[in-house]
């Protein structure tokens, strides 16, 4: 039973591998195609590969912790960095870089800067800096994968096992599929993450007892947060608000339990009476 999530993960990996094989068949056999998909990525694929790239293991494992510890506004800080700052950089630097790279047939950033300033040292420096900073970033994904698989399988897959599985898959996949394959699976993944995110919103709101209840929770939490993180600032007010919040959560839970109880109760009554199957008509006639 605990290995069931592993089946889903492996199934997804196989699906991704299929997409990778397709990309491999479409692509050419040169560096420009492997690293840059021959500079042919369209707007939609580029959008989703950026989206899926920015949503890293940190988004799922570090983001919620940061938002919980430092306040939900931090989600905005991360999102706005990606949304506005990156967008401006893409418009102003990225596009120009793409134009120049296409005209002069550059594949890497180091190549372009080294050539522009006629400096092999600069070229090596850019390559070195990229490697140095990308190592921890890639390792973060492997660590996140290890934690995720361990958590999903309740420890049946150890941390090193999950991390190793994903690492081996990453290496094999990237070697096979190149940037085109990565961008295609990113698009698949991006669409999936985006839709699941909205499903999660609906689910969370329902679990909190509807939009009204969620709004109450939001208001109370917002007030409690403003009352200050330091206990000395307004300790009484803060504690009172937190108490309010806990009470509210309890009342939501109790209400839900009562509903479940009533539902069971009604079903039992209907069952016991044997004949009537329409609970609504029983209710209307006031018999339950």
């Amino acid at each position: 039973m605990t290995l069931q999530p592993l089946g889903i993960v492996v199934g997804y990996l196989l699906l991704a591998l299929g997409v990778g094989l397709l990309a491999y068949r479409v692509g050419d056999n040169d560096a420009e195609d492997f690293y840059l998909a021959s500079r042919t990525l369209g707007t939609l694929v580029l959008l989703f590969t950026t989206f899926a790239t920015l949503l890293s293991a940190f988004t799922f494992f570090g983001g919620p912790n940061l938002a919980y510890a430092a306040g939900p506004e931090w989600i905005l800080v991360m999102g706005v960095m990606d949304g506005i700052l990156f967008a401006v950089l893409w418009y102003v630097i990225g596009y120009r870089q793409w134009l120049i790279g296409r005209a002069r047939e550059y594949v890497t950033l180091g190549e372009m800067l080294g050539d522009r300033f006629a400096s092999p040292t600069l070229r090596a420096l850019v390559a070195g800096v990229s490697l140095l900073w990308l190592f921890p970033y890639v390792m973060l994904q492997q660590m996140g994968a290890g934690e995720a698989l361990r958590g999903l399988t309740s420890g049946a897959i150890p941390y090193w096992g999950g991390a190793a599985l994903i690492t081996v898959f990453m290496i094999a996949y990237v070697m096979l599929a190149g940037l085109r394959g990565v961008a295609w699976t990113d698009t698949l993944q991006g669409l999936f993450m985006l839709s699941v995110l909205w499903v999660a919103v609906v689910w969370v709101v329902n679990a909190a007892g509807g939009v009204g209840a969620a709004a109450t929770v939001g208001r109370t939490v917002a007030r409690a947060r403003v009352a200050g993180p330091s206990r000395s600032a307004a300790p009484r007010r803060r504690e009172r608000l937190l108490d309010e919040y806990v009470q509210h959560l309890q009342s939501v839970l109790v209400a839900q339990q009562r509903q479940d109880f009533l539902r069971v109760d009604r079903r039992t009554i209907v069952h016991l009476r044997g004949s009537a199957t329409d609970v609504g008509s029983l209710e209307r006639s006031g018999r339950i």
Binding site: E73, V80, G83, V211, R219
Partner: peptide, 19 residues
């Protein structure tokens, strides 16, 4: 883009924080 001037504002509009 980051509403730093609304940081810590408790106002809630339509169930969501104003920021």
């Amino acid at each position: 883009s980051v509403p730093w001037f609304l940081w810590g504002s408790a106002s809630v509009v339509a169930g969501l924080p104003v920021w």
